[in-house]
Computed example of a mutant assay.
Amino acid sequence: MLITILAVGIKMPNWVDEAFKDYSKRFGKEAKIALKEIKPEKRGAGVSAEQGIALEEARLRAAIPPNNLMVVLDERGQSLRSTQLAKLIEKWQFEGHNICFIIGGADGLSQEFKSKADLLIKLSDLTLPHGMVRVLLIEQLYRALSILQNHPYHRE
């Protein structure tokens, strides 16, 4: 299984890159992780939030690997426990799917874009900075896979 993370934003702080790399190394043969950073659109100088979102979404659409399930992170998405995420990943693995997780830009994503997702999930009820979202997402993906492998990383 290939898990792609598309994230609007480039040049993250070192701690984000280091944490992401650390968790990426932990994935075994069952899943490979790919991070694709999407250039954010600059706001101002006549570019509205809506125009910026549209331009970022065009870049996201172009970067989504073909035939992937699309999971969008959204503050109004479904809240999942780690064990529920593990069960979803297990189901998708069994069905032979690759998955693309999408983290939008500072102004989010349009309702039209989100409506095309196979699933909308949220990581927290709190508003989180984008770098933190990357780290939390990859940690939860690693946790989900460790649950499926009965690895002692996850404790209930």
Rank of each mutant, 00 (worst) to 15 (best):
Q111W: 04
I138Y: 00
D125Y: 12
P65Q: 05
V8Y: 06
K32H: 11
G77V: 10
L136H: 07
F113A: 09
Q140G: 07
L141F: 09
K42P: 11
L137G: 02
F94L: 13
L137Y: 05
A144N: 07
A7V: 15
K87F: 05
S48F: 09
I103M: 03
S124L: 08
A19K: 01
E90G: 14
A7P: 03
R81P: 00
R81H: 12
A86E: 03
I121D: 00
Q149W: 03
Y23C: 01
N150H: 14
L69Y: 06
A45P: 02
E75A: 15
V71K: 03
S110M: 04
I121N: 02
Q149Y: 05
L88P: 02
P152R: 11
L148S: 12
K87C: 02
L6R: 00
A7S: 15
R43N: 01
G104C: 01
V135Y: 01
K39T: 14
T127D: 12
L2R: 15
K39G: 00
H151Q: 11
T127A: 13
A49V: 14
D17W: 06
A7I: 11
L126P: 05
E90F: 06
L109G: 10
E37M: 08
S124K: 09
A49D: 13
S82M: 08
H151N: 15
E95P: 00
F113D: 02
E95L: 13
K114H: 04
A63N: 12
M1I: 08
G77H: 10
L128F: 13
G9F: 00
R43D: 00
L85N: 03
F20M: 09
L35A: 09
K87T: 11
G104V: 00
R143H: 05
A31C: 12
V133L: 03
P13G: 07
S82Q: 04
L123V: 08
N98D: 15
T127C: 09
K91H: 12
D118T: 05
V8H: 02
L126C: 08
P66C: 06
E139Y: 06
D118W: 04
A31H: 12
D125R: 15
W92D: 07
Q140H: 11
R134N: 09
I3P: 01
E18K: 15
E50V: 12
G28P: 08
E57P: 04
V8G: 01
V47L: 05
L141I: 13
R143C: 10
L123I: 12
D118Q: 10
N150F: 06
L141M: 10
M12F: 15
L145M: 13
D107T: 05
E95C: 02
R81V: 02
M12H: 14
I33A: 08
L119P: 00
S24Y: 06
H130G: 06
R59A: 10
Y23K: 03
E75C: 07
F27Y: 10
R76Q: 15
L35G: 08
E37G: 02
T127F: 10
E156L: 06
S48A: 10
R61Y: 03
D74T: 01
H154P: 12
G52C: 03
D74R: 00
L123K: 06
Q93V: 10
K32W: 02
G105L: 04
P66T: 11
P152E: 08
L2Y: 04
I102Q: 01
S24G: 13
I121L: 10
M1C: 04
A58I: 11
M70S: 11
Q78N: 12
Y23V: 03
L148F: 02
S115P: 08
